[in-house]
């Protein structure tokens, strides 16, 4: 199954009725927990904070089930709510909840198959971006959304999304280049 495509529980007209039941809602949490938790984790790089905010998102979902129209709407709603909660939390509390990036131990969860050093470096670089740019990059590459979908999710114009993406990638390339240049000097 591709990223962004998840199995929908109880597809059809009865899915909402099922979601109101405890077992149905638990199934819904299981289906979407990775997406929601991961958005928060890539944004904060702090497991406790990511878990707290992701739980809050699902509690909000439980209270807002009546306003959800379909499984597709549900997924978009979760993405939007998680993104906005992360950005709001970051803006209200600043960086105090984040773990310092230097010396950060990578989590014990299964790491993608690529170069672990490169993966760690990219994650650290992404975590150093300004909040809106960081969320745009996470939605782009974790959720595989295009600019229009990101714009809808974050409630910003498509041009702003493109601008954030361009700036973020330029900044990441520059920082990655600086790190690559610094590495041989550190080795000497």
């Amino acid at each position: 199954m591709e990223a962004g495509q998840v199995a929908q529980p109880n597809v059809g007209t009865t899915w909402k009725a099922a979601a109101r039941e405890e077992a149905g809602f638990a199934e819904l949490v299981h289906t979407h927990q990775s997406m929601v938790y991961s958005l928060c984790w890539h944004f904060f790089r702090n497991r406790a904070l990511a878990e707290e905010i992701a739980q809050d998102v699902f509690l909000q979902l439980f209270r807002s089930l009546d306003s959800i129209e379909s499984p597709q709407h549900l997924e978009a709603w979760l993405r939007r709510t998680a993104s906005n909660r992360c950005i709001d939390h970051y803006r209200k509390r600043g960086r105090q909840g984040e773990v310092p990036l230097e010396g950060l131990v990578e989590p014990a969860s299964p790491v993608p198959t690529g170069d672990p050093l490169m993966i760690g470096m990219v994650r650290k670089l992404v975590a150093s971006l300004p909040d809106a740019q960081r969320m745009v990059v996470v939605l782009r590459y974790q959720e595989d959304l295009d600019a229009t979908e990101i714009a809808t999710t974050l409630g910003m114009p498509v041009q702003t999304v493109w601008s954030h993406l361009r700036r973020a990638i330029a900044m990441l390339q520059e920082k990655a280049g600086r790190k690559a240049n610094a590495a041989p000097k550190e080795g000497n």
Binding site: Y37, R47, A54, P110, P112, V122, V137, Q142
Partner: peptide, 12 residues
């Protein structure tokens, strides 16, 4: 690289 580094993390 971005896609790989930012792939979905499983929740605890």
């Amino acid at each position: 690289d971005f896609r790989e580094a930012l792939s979905r993390e499983p929740a605890p």
